[in-house]
């Protein structure tokens, strides 16, 4: 628990530093994720040391969004002025993004499976 929390915060910190170095266009948490992955992959740290903490916090991520979600109340007025535009744009674009990404990836996988069969 202590060891796992320490490693996660350490890689978060390293990620933040790296983010500052490259001008901040990738957030520290995302770089921390990549660094933690690399440390595990190249056996710098043992998987067991972060397993418990990492599994429990990633399984309950949604609860961490409550403060930000409640924050929508502050922007209620700003948002309500252009509500139609905002809702249509976000809903439409989110659905299109989901469909595009899923279909492109699945097509790649199908094509690869077909090529494998042809080679047999």
């Amino acid at each position: 628990m202590i060891r796992g929390s320490f490693y996660i915060l350490l890689f978060y910190f390293l990620g933040e530093m790296l983010s500052k170095l490259i001008g901040g266009f990738v957030p520290g948490s995302v770089l921390g994720m990549v660094l933690l992955f690399l440390a595990l992959y190249f056996k710098v740290i043992k998987p067991e040391s972060v397993k418990d903490v990492a599994t429990s916090i990633t399984k309950n991520m949604a609860v961490f969004f409550v403060p930000a979600g409640v924050g929508l109340m502050v922007y209620a007025e700003l948002v309500s002025k252009s509500l139609a535009a905002i809702l249509v744009a976000i809903a439409g674009s989110t659905i299109l993004t989901i469909i595009t990404v899923a279909l492109v990836q699945e097509n790649f996988e199908k094509r690869r499976a077909k090529n494998k069969e042809l080679q047999k």
Partner: peptide, 28 residues
Amino acid sequence: YQTFYQNTRILNFMLGPSVVALGYVLYE
């Protein structure tokens, strides 16, 4: 909202570590 946010900021902070922790899930 400021008061609410200030007093629940530990949860908001946890967003960062939870993204970092995805590095482990990715490794698995």
